[in-house]
Write a protein that binds this DNA or RNA. Structure first.
Lengths: 206, 206
DNA sequence: GTCTATAGGATGATAGAC
DNA sequence: GTCTATCATCCTATAGAC
C-alpha cells in the first residue's frame, strides 16, 4: 500500500487542516476497504498517507472515530453522486439506471464501497454496527423517498449493489481471463462497465 | 458469546476427535461470523467451545487454517442443502425458489453465511482471498451447471443472497419494530421468512 | 501541525506437564 | 487429548519535543 492521492509530501510538511483531513480520510478509506476495520492498522493508514502513525490517531482521536469518519464521508459522496445523477436531465433513462451508473462510478473512489461493506458485516459491534445500520437505511430511504423507486425496485437496486460490492471485494476480476464462470458472472453483473472494473483492478496490482 | 451446541463438557473431558473437531468448527463459525477473520480471537473461539485457547490453535495449526476449515465446512453444508432441496420432488416450485428456501434455512447455522461474507470481502488476502474466490465460484457453477439456472437467474439469486447476508450482518432486524424503512426492507427481502430471522435475532440477544 | 519514542495491552503460537 | 504457563509480536494510544 503506497501513498494515496497527491504525491506524498516531504515528512513534516505542513498542510491546511481541511486538506490534511481529506488526505487522511482518502488513505484510510483505501486501507479499511482492503483489510477491514480490525485488519487495517493505523500504521498502514499513516504510511499510505505519508504521515506518522501517532498523527493519524491524534487527528481523529481513536481508530474507531476515524472509521466512523470514513463511513460518513463515503455515505456523503454516495448521496451526492446519486442526487447529481438524478438531477441530470436525461429523460431517456430510468431513475434506477441513472443511480446504478453513479453507483458503479463510485468504484473509482478507492475503498469507498468496500469500507461500507466491511461496516455492514460488523452489525454486532455496538458503535460501528449502529452507524452501519443507519447508513444502510439512509440509502434505502433515499431510494424510496427521493429517487421514487417502489419497494421492489429499491430492493433490486440494493441487491445488485451488494453483489457488485461482493464481486469487487473478493477480487473476482482477478480471474476474468482465466475462469469461464468468473467471466460469465462479471459480464452478467456489469454489462457495460467491465472495462472500468478491469482498469481499477490493474491499477491496484502491486 | 457463551458456549455452542452441546452443553460445554467439563474441562479436560476427552472426546472423539471427529466430534471435537466439529464442535470447534461450529464455535469458530459463530465467532468468525460475528467478528470477522481478524476480529475473531482464538481465545473467544476457545471460550465459545469450552476448551483452552492453545488447544484450538493446536488442533488446526494456525488461526488461518482454522478459518479455511470453517469456510470449507460452510460451503459443504451449503451445497448439501442445495442438492437436497433440488432433489426433493416438488414440481410445483422452481429451482430458484427451492434453492432460495434452502439458502434462508442456512441462517439457522449460526455464523455460516456471515463467515463466508467476511471471507468474500477479504479478496486481497493472498490465502483467504483465493479460497473465497474459489468458494464463490463453486456456488456460481452449481447454479449454472447443476441447478440449471440461466446466467440472469444465477445472477439474481446471488444478488438477493448477498443482500440477505448484508441485512443479517448489519443486524437490520434489530430495527424491525422501530424503523419503518427497516421493516419495509426486511419484508421485501424476506417475504416469507421474517419469522425465522426475528427468531434468530432474539436467540442471539445477549 | 507533525514527529520520535515508548508505554501498555492484546493476541497467536510454542513448550511441556498430565 | 487437553491443559497451564509463557513468549514474542504487534498495535493503539499517550507524552513530549520541535
Amino acid at each position: 500500500m503506497s501513498s494515496v492521492d497527491t504525491p506524498t509530501p516531504e515528512p513534516g510538511t505542513r498542510m491546511r487542516s481541511g486538506d490534511r483531513r481529506e488526505q487522511l480520510l482518502a488513505a484510510a478509506t483505501a486501507v479499511f476497504g482492503e483489510r477491514g476495520y480490525v485488519g487495517a492498522t493505523t500504521d498502514a493508514i499513516a504510511r499510505a498517507a505519508g504521515v506518522s502513525q501517532p498523527y493519524v490517531v491524534r487527528t481523529f482521536g481513536t481508530k474507531e472515530a476515524l472509521f466512523l469518519a470514513v463511513l460518513g464521508r463515503a455515505l456523503d459522496r454516495m448521496l451526492v453522486a446519486f442526487r447529481t445523477a438524478l438531477a441530470a436531465d436525461d429523460p431517456a433513462t430510468s431513475a434506477t439506471a441513472r443511480i446504478s451508473a453513479a453507483y458503479v462510478e463510485l468504484l473509482s473512489d478507492r475503498g469507498l464501497l468496500l469500507s461500507l461493506m466491511h461496516a455492514f458485516v460488523l452489525g454486532s459491534d455496538p458503535v460501528i454496527g449502529a452507524a452501519a445500520r443507519e447508513g444502510f437505511l439512509c440509502v434505502a430511504r433515499f431510494l424510496r423517498e427521493e429517487a421514487g423507486l417502489d419497494p421492489e425496485e429499491a430492493r433490486a437496486f440494493l441487491a445488485y449493489g451488494m453483489l457488485l460490492n461482493t464481486l469487487v471485494g473478493v477480487r473476482m476480476a482477478d480471474l476474468y481471463e482465466t475462469d469461464a464462470a468468473a467471466r460469465e458472472l462479471l459480464d452478467a453483473a456489469m454489462p457495460t462497465k467491465i472495462d472500468l472494473l478491469l482498469r481499477i483492478r490493474d491499477a491496484e496490482k502491486r
